[in-house]
């Protein structure tokens, strides 16, 4: 049983979720409240990872993050190290892969907020960032928590994307899902079963929490 892989999976999920929450909140706000002309196009683009096979997403990320790709090239020039097959690389890949899962519940929570509260806050003199911090966020905490847990679980379960971008470097990019796959490939069924069993209750409990958070108050 590969404890490092399990630990790495959790670390990846925590880091990616934290960053995603911060990045997605303003984006979800934009999606929920603005009347941008090209909103539908932007939204379809952001949701692409939902529809495409993870290997395709992973392939594009591989090209983008490789030494010749714009992101990989920029990263190498800035830090002197490559982006592919590193922990940072799979964090970036997980973020892009999981954005739709962060965006949808958060956007739904923002849209559920009574627009009259926002009008009220405007009349009371609050600037848009202040409205975001003092009215929107406190009134959509359940949706934000649900979004965080879904992203966490989705990152924990990511396989194809991470294999494409990160490969299987022990302690760097060999997360639980990759380790389980390799254990099965090398016929170590016992080890695979243990790791799978370790993931099962985590996912189950978190899904129960999501259900509790998103059910409508009765």
């Amino acid at each position: 049983m590969d404890w490092t892989a399990l630990f790495l999976s959790l670390k990846l999920a925590v880091v990616a979720t934290t960053i995603l929450m911060i990045v997605t909140a303003p984006l979800a706000c934009l999606m929920a409240y603005s009347r941008l002309p090209g909103k539908a196009f932007l939204e379809a683009f952001i949701n692409l990872p939902l529809a495409m096979p993870p290997t395709v997403v992973g392939f594009y990320l591989l090209i983008m993050m490789g030494p010749e790709g714009w992101l990989g090239g920029m990263w190498t020039r800035a830090t002197g190290s490559p982006l592919l097959f590193t922990f940072t690389g799979i964090v970036i890949a997980s973020i892009i892969y999981s954005i739709p899962f962060a965006l949808q519940p958060m956007r739904a929570a923002f849209e559920k907020i009574d627009p009259r509260l926002i009008e009220s806050a405007r009349i009371l003199g609050l600037s848009p960032p202040a409205i975001f911090a003092r009215v929107i966020i406190p009134n959509s905490l359940n949706g934000i928590a649900a979004s965080a847990i879904l992203v966490f679980l989705h990152t924990l379960g990511a396989f194809g994307v991470i294999l494409m971008v990160g490969g299987s470097v022990p302690g760097q990019t060999r997360v639980a899902s990759v380790a389980i796959y390799e254990a099965v490939e090398t016929l170590q069924y016992g080890s695979a079963a243990m790791m799978s069993l370790a993931l099962l209750p985590i996912c189950y409990i978190f899904l129960l929490v999501v259900h509790r958070l998103t059910r409508s108050p009765s």
Binding site: I123, L124, G125, N139
Partner: peptide, 29 residues
């Protein structure tokens, strides 16, 4: 914009901020 007009507006059925106490609602602005 409404923020700069500095007026008070009481509506028939506008909700108070549900996450704040009565005191914090009154002290909101």
């Amino acid at each position: 914009p409404p923020q700069k007009r500095r007026l008070g507006y009481v509506f028939q059925d506008y909700p108070l901020f549900p996450h704040l106490s009565i005191h914090d609602n009154a002290a909101f602005a």
